[in-house]
Write a protein that binds this DNA or RNA. Sequence first.
DNA 1: ACTATGCTTCTTACGTCGTAAGAATGTCAA
DNA 2: TTGACATTCTTACGACGTAAGAAGCATAGT
Lengths: 229, 229
Amino acid sequence: MPAAKTSRTRGPGQKAGLSRESVLDHALTLVDRVGLAALTMRGLGAELGVEAMTVYHYVPTKDALLDGILERAFTLATPDIDTTRPWQESLHDYAHGLYQGLLRHPGVLPLASSRPAATPDMLDRAEDYLRLLVDAGFALGRALHMVNALTVFVIGHATAAAAVRTAAQGASQEPEADAGSTAWVAGLDADRYPLLVEAARTGQGTDDDERFAFAVDSLITGFADRGPA
Amino acid sequence: MPAAKTSRTRGPGQKAGLSRESVLDHALTLVDRVGLAALTMRGLGAELGVEAMTVYHYVPTKDALLDGILERAFTLATPDIDTTRPWQESLHDYAHGLYQGLLRHPGVLPLASSRPAATPDMLDRAEDYLRLLVDAGFALGRALHMVNALTVFVIGHATAAAAVRTAAQGASQEPEADAGSTAWVAGLDADRYPLLVEAARTGQGTDDDERFAFAVDSLITGFADRGPA
DNA sequence: ACTATGCTTCTTACGTCGTAAGAATGTCAA
DNA sequence: TTGACATTCTTACGACGTAAGAAGCATAGT
């Protein structure tokens, strides 16, 4: 076999065929594999078959790299929704589509807490839904409130879900760790937290996706209750 | 004047009067002042008038320190609400109280994205509200969904609000930066984002607290629409 | 009073991180 | 051929988290 990309070093001048996009994509998959805390410039360089400093030709700083992979994750997650249907259904599909999309790269979600999620794709979607809602009779300010509330909730819920998932993957002392994100609750003091423990033991309200669906439906119902102007 | 605490060093053995709590509190105020990224063990030591390694006698690792200050922030933020009133009002007050409380320490909110917010105080509150809702006739699973949705939304919204606030503090190129977190939207391409730009220019739906209040009311209305079982 | 024990603090040092500076190698236009 | 430019590598610096253990102080047991 010819020299594999993993083994041979390369002198200066020999191109490695990189681009900003390939750098961001490799960084994204690296984060998915090793976690955000273990993403280092040297490690990313190794992933790309290149020295650490080479990465700086495509990204000015590590913070810019993090901005880039978050934006990329959002772009990949932004759903394409049919906005010709009733606004309730469109918002519902938007919320669920974005949620599922975000969970495809759970490792980068913590970045969303300290950076704005205003990528071009997200702005495009926001504009689309504003149009839909305004046409449905909502005041512009009201429509913005609705889109904002839904987006914030989706990101917040996805981030929380991702956190417990990666945490469960980290500390698995007992093999009984099933899909349950709330398994630890069952071990609490049943005298102090009777209802919490009962819910955890009987499995009531513990399913993450069910929780999400309930909240989205409640939000949309609440929107409709105020009605188009 | 006698030797001030800022100037003189201290030999081994001389106590500095520290405790886990004082360490966490100083760390919290330090984060509020310089930001989360600038929190270092050496810096925290200096804040306490002590060498960096001394901190490790009260906290096993920096990660545990971060756990501690997040828990402390949540404890300080958890509101004490009268649960003898209609469940809608109690939930409303809970959401607003927690929101305002969290914004008192905006710098630590990004930590909430990667760590569980299940402090004892938060669990106490959750248990209280579960009781309230179950007594009001909701099924236990449903009640858990409601408390969870509200909490996730409050944390998510507070985190987003804190992010834009600290971001606005960082890059103020133009002096026109008022309280507006969404000022940058007005500078977007008005042809591509007509509604977004119009909303930003006319100030419709741009107030952060108003947005929050609207979303909370919508959520609670949606809860009520499904009604107590 | 003396000494052993344990708590608190300090000193030193190691490995890793982000990244500044600039040399080396390749490509391509004049 | 000769530069100018783009891409990569090498080396190095300062800051970080923290491991290891020495140094000073208090207190209990003899």
